[in-house]
């Protein structure tokens, strides 16, 4: 228990360093998730809108899950050497699958009746997408983004071994920071991830259309569990 006390003391004594690294950590996360969104959202939404490519869209998340983080980083180091670029690529690769798959499933799964009604009222495909499909798909799309963010925050820690900068710098460098430093930084990362999870859960709730909230949210189901969609194939 003493180690934890020392760890917390370390946080107090090194708040400047930790703050700096937290910002770096979030920058890395933000950049990686941002790039991933630019790649994955249009593809996922478009495929979902066309009801095409379900095999690719679904299996990409299975493949993504099967890619061990550290292995991905090690490939990056072997090919690109240690550095920022390598970490970034690894993080983007890990963030794309959940965003893409969720976006696809979300748009694809929008109630067919609603879409047909919209078409029947004379909406163009683009209007159908923007006015009907996207609003209804938003909560699930957002859930994918949440999974990606939490995932990237965790993985950015490990990226420190390959040249990324963040709270992981302390955790992987016990020689310099000793156990209290490692524990302190671990606590910070854990809190950071939990806060992100909480924040995004609240945001997701806020953007869910009220009409959907009633039917989709099961009573007694913890928000956090919804972060891991139950996948049956």
């Amino acid at each position: 228990m003493n180690d934890f006390v020392d760890g917390i003391k370390f946080i107090g004594d090194n708040s400047g360093l930790l703050w700096h690294l937290t910002i770096k950590h979030l920058e890395l996360t933000g950049a990686a998730v941002g790039i991933a969104l630019l790649i994955a959202l249009p593809i996922g939404i478009w495929l979902g809108h066309l009801h095409r490519g379900s095999f690719v869209a679904i299996s990409i998340s299975n493949v993504g899950r099967a890619l061990p983080t550290l292995a991905l980083i090690s490939f990056g180091v072997a090919i690109l050497g240690i550095g920022f670029l390598n970490s970034m690529i690894a993080l983007v690769i890990l963030a794309v699958p959940p965003v893409l798959t969720n976006a696809y499933v979300a748009v694809e799964g929008v109630d067919r009746d609603a879409v047909e009604a919209a078409e029947g009222m004379g909406m163009t495909p683009l209007e159908v997408l923007l006015r009907v499909e996207l609003p209804l798909a938003l909560p699930l799309i957002f859930a994918g983004i949440r999974i990606a963010v939490v995932f990237v925050i965790a993985t950015a820690t490990i990226a420190s071994v390959a040249g990324g900068t963040g709270l992981g710098d302390i955790i992987v460098d016990q020689a310099t920071y000793r156990l209290p430093g490692v524990i302190g930084a671990s606590i910070c990362v854990a809190v950071l991830a939990l806060l992100a999870q909480l924040l995004f859960a609240l945001l997701q709730r806020a953007i869910t259309p009220r009409g959907l909230r009633v039917q989709k949210v099961r009573p007694g189901r913890p928000e956090s569990a919804a972060a891991v969609p139950v996948i049956t194939n």
Partner: peptide, 22 residues
Amino acid sequence: VGIVAGILYTIPSLALFQLLVP
């Protein structure tokens, strides 16, 4: 159970490994 499991799941692995060391 869901909340506790969710929290455990959210903690980054590197941090959780280290937090168990003490």
